[in-house]
Amino acid sequence: MTRTLGRIALALVCFLIALWLVAPTLVIIPISFSETQSLAFPPTGFSWKWYANIFDNRAWSRSLVTSVEIGLIVAAVATVLGTMAALGLERLKNRLGGTIRLLLLTPVVMPGVVLAVGIYAVYLNLHLTGTWTGYVLAHTLLALPFVVIAVSANLSVFDARLEVAAASLGASRLTVLRTVTVPLIAPGILSGALFAFVTSFDEVIVSLFITSAQLKTLPVQIYASMTRDTDPTVAAIGTLTLVVTTVLIGAGLLFSLSRGRK
């Protein structure tokens, strides 16, 4: 009797926590269809104009495109550098390797503003503020830990004897890497690339410091709009990303479920 009671209580608590995790984000959906320029909830009327505004207003459309492009470049750069580093670290199991691994993970725990202030100072000297290179370098730093973690996790369950076997059959180091190692750790590389893109696409603190009027990323534009006035376009952009990620992750889940059934 007490056990069922306990179970019901746990289920109820978990339901409330799940609701609390998910529901706040979802309030942006009704707001994005608001007819008036206000954040009052529930919104009045229905319109698509905030979605139209994303594409009509150059500040919004340009920052969205910029963020997607920077995100893709960062995903490519961070994935290549991070995968190389993870492969190297897997073979460097000594004190030096441990130190390097720790170093590569530090960006995660760095207080954002301290890092941003420092990067801003370096960029002022190198004339990198408001440049593509500047954004890509800073975002790559922040994305690297996630790639290293994802690829390393995959490498730790990977059977290194397969590489030895391939090499003993005469494959060169590059062939082993290309035909044995990389295909086997592809899931780790892929999830690393995804994390890298998301890290760049969401990054706001460093971007706020190194931004310029000419080259602005989406989070910077959102932040600026939030401090200036109430603009439901933010809700429209948020809803749009929510829909895109839901579709992508849903497709990924269906794919992995259908493969798992085989």
Binding site: V27, I28, I31, M226, V234
Partner: peptide
Amino acid sequence: VPFWVSGVVRTFAWVIL
């Protein structure tokens, strides 16, 4: 799910609430 929307947008949602 909260990770599917950027931190700035989630903060925006909290402003609404």
